[in-house]
Design a binder for these strands. Sequence first.
DNA 1: TTACTTAGTGTAAAAATTACACACTATATT
DNA 2: AATATAGTGTGTAATTTTTACACTAAGTAA
Lengths: 229, 229
Amino acid sequence: MEQILPHLDSVFSIDCVLFGFDGKELKILLIERNEEPFKDWWALPGNIVGPDESLDQSASRILYELTGLRGIYMEQYYAFGDPNRHPQGRVITLAYYALIRLGGDKELRPISTYAKRASWLPITDLPKLAFDHQKIYDKGLEKIKRRIKHQPIAFELLPEKFTLTQLQHVYELVLGKKLDKRNFRKKIVSFGVLKELDEKQKGVSYRAATLYRFDKRKYAKLFGKEISF
Amino acid sequence: MEQILPHLDSVFSIDCVLFGFDGKELKILLIERNEEPFKDWWALPGNIVGPDESLDQSASRILYELTGLRGIYMEQYYAFGDPNRHPQGRVITLAYYALIRLGGDKELRPISTYAKRASWLPITDLPKLAFDHQKIYDKGLEKIKRRIKHQPIAFELLPEKFTLTQLQHVYELVLGKKLDKRNFRKKIVSFGVLKELDEKQKGVSYRAATLYRFDKRKYAKLFGKEISF
DNA sequence: TTACTTAGTGTAAAAATTACACACTATATT
DNA sequence: AATATAGTGTGTAATTTTTACACTAAGTAA
């Protein structure tokens, strides 16, 4: 129904599960709340949707305000609207996840007043979360597990140039299980969306691996044919 | 972010793509609007989320008010919130799809004032839709196409007892392509979630087919193992 | 030079997918 | 009673995909 109606006393927000990969671990960005309710608890970053913002813009803004990053891959995945999910009123929230390559350490920016601080925490060891944020996170992880099997999202977590071992590592962390090296390589190469570079990994104290790049052009040509992991 | 905030002048609604299957065609339920904007246009049924309703409850209510049906499979799938999607103000809408077995003809109930009438229209021949409802429908169809490959949702569109040909027909309509009869049967039976009944189809003027039932118990046991079409 | 660490590679067996055609059965028609 | 009709139900061989599995090569560090 789309007619104009008296407005209701509800608030519409966006919460984000920002997945980051630093080459070792899969992490998410959490903020430590400085306000009631759930003061001192960890929570997913979020905000109210502004009156002239699209939903995607709003999600990008939240991410930008925390990290200073733009142009990050984000995807809306579920709306949570239980009438009691917020102790102080009706707040319907739309969840987004983002996939971020973590580079140096200076990803974080000064934080707004409602949070004390923000940190990247490994998903293997998360604290208790405020509100229904555990549920939101769980569903987000489930979504990327599913999506990584069909869409080339793993590359969003890696630097532009990466080794096959790094790529496999991302798949293993997201899927939560070990994969066979030879079979992984065979399959991922067979999709034909990787470009092998003439370059090698640097700064490692062992044999350097060949670098690859995700080839968006080739991927675009494949469209219709689904990747299937 | 989850603090209490001044409320914003936005409205939160739910729109539903109600897919129905009558044994022949895949249809959706559309209403013909009786109010501006988009008076006389066809639109997806929808409504405002009530203050004490969960999102799922709200979707179920919309469906119930139109069809009198309860206990129907519904799934939330995407939020649409472009600031300009509604000409008269900010309306963020959450899309649900439902899967309904259409029985006799008397599925529809009297309609609220904002609509002239409601009809089941075949998806192969849809009219122009109001607002961004074409986009909402497109995404809904895309979702069920994807989901029918991994989850046992086809059964929601069929009567409790059905033939394998009917089941194949549902898959073909949703996926939009023909499937091989023998291969389809082999695969669907191999999942082990169908129970073959001792009963035959009735009222057909040719050899009657064996009836099957979806076996929820067996399916529950399989959990973890994904169906893959 | 040696020890260490990760890179990179092939094959055979098993399983899944595809392509494909005809005889059977129930009913309706004459 | 015979025949036409329309959809049911079934098997196999070829191909492709998936799986399981272990060693040598290359580079660095000591």
